[in-house]
Design a protein around this nucleic acid. Structure first.
Lengths: 188, 188
DNA sequence: GGACTAAAAGCAATTTAATTGCTTTAGTGA
DNA sequence: TCACTAAAGCAATTAAATTGCTTTTAGTCC
């Protein structure tokens, strides 16, 4: 739900949103996700439950909202001077973060939030696309070969995510590197 | 949860499980997922809520259980006489089923069910692997080239799933075919 | 075949979350 | 400063989740 797209910074709405998000993060870090309820969050955030119900609709929407926020990258991929290492390092870090306990929980929250029509997962996909785009542009600026961004999504990002979500074990570092190598021109 | 792995067929347990599953399917087909509650399911199935709580733990576990059941393929991939068409047709059908409204809902249910440690998603991955395996074995019997099953998962199944779960639009039929073609030896 | 037992289901009371009408308050703009 | 609107608080209501205890059922052993 979260129809509040233009909140004036510093206003009451913004403060409530911040404290609720903070409360969710704090609670999720100390207790089991299934024990977190809206009344609990409300108490922790110093607001009333009805405020949360009216702004977010239900727990899943709220958790999804917080998760999307946390999954937003806080920095562009590191510039290592080479396409190969840029992409490899970025992919390895991506895989690690997503495969971690909190990472997996956030992905689940994001996906659950889409049940009622939200577009949370789309945002995450967008973040990822942007990150790959940055690497792609750097490659282009250097005059290096680089595959289509969508191809990277299909052949590197998707397998990583699939393994994390559906398979017994998350992809190893070697596996991730192999996925990347498969895409890049064999110049070594 | 569902610690009931060996239920005698025809026994009371089996009957209860069947009627609860049936009730869930029936309710999900007529109403919004967020309106389905355990008391409702219990009434529909003719059992008491406590039975469901004791057997499945919570709604998510139950929905996940039902979803896994429904995602189990009911037949091996069609044998078309050629590797290329076997895999292409299977992949297209897989993509269609998963991208449909009910398909996506089931996937979400399966993933949510894993939050409390379940291994529902792993089962689905296993089903998929088995299906690809069947196609791979047929290819081998015919003496045809065929990639590793895990490669098919990474390069065909994973992108399909990723697009369905995270992207704006599910993969088109052309897109799916392109993913398959990318893997098969260009003999045409 | 009939009693015995353990597992599973039913019942009912209790707790607690979800939900909503109404009131109050804090920012916004005249 | 004053009114106005949107968001937050309050409180009562509804309904779901949860659990101790009882009853039933199906398999087992005389």
């Amino acid at each position: 739900m979260n129809m509040r797209e233009n909140i004036r910074p510093g206003g009451r709405s913004a403060r409530v949103q911040a404290s609720v998000h903070e409360a969710v993060r704090s609670l999720l870090s100390t207790m089991d996700r299934s024990d977190v309820t809206i009344p609990l969050i409300a108490t922790e955030a110093g607001v009333t439950p009805s405020t949360i119900y009216r702004r977010w609709g239900d727990l899943q929407e709220l958790l999804a909202d917080v998760a999307v926020e946390r999954l937003r990258p806080d920095a562009p991929p590191k510039d290592t001077g080479s396409v190969r290492t840029d992409l490899t390092q970025w992919a390895e870090q991506y895989a690690d973060e997503m495969a971690s306990g909190p990472g997996r929980a956030m992905i689940r929250d994001v996906l659950s939030g889409d049940a009622s029509g939200g577009r949370n997962a789309g945002k995450c996909c967008g973040y990822t696309r942007e990150q790959v785009q940055v690497i792609a542009e750097r490659a282009r600026d250097r005059g290096d070969e680089f595959p289509e961004v969508e191809t990277v999504i299909d052949q590197v990002v998707a397998p990583i995510m699939y393994r994390i979500l559906f398979d017994e074990a998350p992809p190893t570092s070697e596996k991730v590197r192999a996925l990347v190598e498969r895409l890049l021109p064999a110049d070594r």
